[in-house]
Each structure stands twice: as structure tokens, then as C-alpha cells.
Design a protein around this nucleic acid. Structure first.
Lengths: 107, 107
DNA sequence: CCATTACATAGACGATCATCTATGTATAGT
DNA sequence: ACTATACATAGATGATCGTCTATGTAATGG
């Protein structure tokens, strides 16, 4: 399993404000000024959070005149669920390499 | 949606070493010394990581003589998947409260 | 052209984090 | 009793993080 990308997604999600942004975007595209209205922090702080989300591959942006429209990356939604299922699956191949490993015995 | 608990899980998972620990435990119970063999960091560092995972409700521990056996909380596995699905679901009720919200229109 | 709006960037600051060494505390074996 | 093993705790340190103010930039409207 490729932890690197998954960890980057998890890090980007592991902030209550960014999690709320993802929740907001899960219902469709929004521009920065619309998102900002739901928070108490400053505009540069939002700009910072959006960059973190972009770098993690969670959102993408389309420029439209003065506005930046942010949307969730469908690839992120898919990959995050997939990685989560793989991590927490009970029948995944075990890393522990012990002869008495419960998981390997189960396979 | 209760972000608080979900964020705590995400924060605990958002570290490559702790993610690997979760992966290791997904195949069954392990004691600290077994887990430690898979890493380069020191024993106190592992102890710290295990505490973070416990505080997030991700692992629980059973003492057996000198050993501490760590296991994944089944409740965590269930709740994390559930929260993830809820967050990323396309048909979840929207927070944006805009009259032209794509999600609300879809409902 | 000038003011306004919608953002991004730079730099600073306090808080949190991952890691370490040193040390403490049980438990087990001899 | 003594030693070794398995783990936890304390405290320090450097790095990262979330936020801020100040400023820059690009687009729009009169």
C-alpha cells in the first residue's frame, strides 16, 4: 500500500476547518468568498487551507474572472475510500510476518 | 456531523508511522515489542504513538504479565468508515445553504 | 484611470508535534 | 536479591502547523 499519498490526504483532512470545507464542497462547487462566509478566520488563512487541500489532491480550482471556483476531486473521493477500505480490511495481507499471524492463518 | 471525534481519528492516522501501526494491527493483536521491530525509532517514541492511538479510540490494550497487547477497536473501524462515507457522500444534506445549491436541487 | 473586489504571497508568531535521552516501574527468571 | 525484560513517564529540542497582519496582483466597474 502506498502510504505517502494517503497520509497527505489524511493530514489535509485532519483539521476541523478543512474538514468543514470538504463537507461544504461535497455538495458542489463554491468560490472562496462563499466558503469564507462559513468561518471566522481571515481570508489569507482560507487561502492557505485551500492550497493545502489542492496540494493533497482533494480539491481543484477553475478560474472565472475574479473568482476561483473550488470543487472536490472525484479521484480523491474514490481513492480515499479505497485506501481506507484497504487499510481497515480484515482480510488484507498482513505485514507482521509472524508465523502465528491471525490474518495469515485466516487466509 | 460530529467532526470532533472524526478529526481526532484523522489526526492520529495522519502520520506514516502510526498508519503503519494500524496496518500491522489490522491483522490481529500485537505487543509493543513486536510492533517496535518494524520501525527505526526508539521505544519511548512507540509508547507515545500508541498513546495517541489509544486516545483517539483507535486501539485498546490488554495487559498480560510484562506485555501489553494492542488491538484495533472494532468500533473505530466501523465509525471511521461511516464518517468517511457521510462526509464524501454526494447526496448528503448540504451545509452551504445557497438557494442554487447543486446538492439540495438534486434532493 | 481610479477605486473596488477577489484572491495570493510573504513573513512573523505561538502552539502543537515527533523524536530523543534519561529515568522510573513493574514483571519474570535465576 | 539480583538482573534482565517490557513498557511508561518526564523533559528537552527542532520541525511543522494554523493563524495573523501587511502587502501584492489581477479583474471589474464607473
Amino acid at each position: 500500500m502506498d502510504y505517502q499519498n494517503y497520509v497527505q490526504m489524511l493530514k489535509a483532512m485532519a483539521d476541523p476547518n478543512r474538514l468543514k470545507i470538504i463537507d461544504l464542497l461535497s455538495c458542489g462547487s463554491l468560490c472562496a468568498c462563499d466558503i469564507l462566509q462559513h468561518f471566522d478566520f481571515s481570508q489569507p488563512t482560507l487561502s492557505h487551507h485551500m492550497k493545502v487541500l489542492q496540494n493533497a489532491g482533494i480539491v481543484f480550482t477553475v478560474k472565472d474572472g475574479k473568482w476561483q471556483h473550488y470543487s472536490l476531486q472525484k479521484r480523491f473521493v474514490q481513492e480515499f475510500k479505497q485506501n481506507t477500505d484497504q487499510l481497515l480490511a480484515a482480510d488484507e495481507h498482513c505485514l507482521c510476518q509472524r508465523s502465528d499471524c491471525e490474518k495469515d492463518v485466516a487466509n
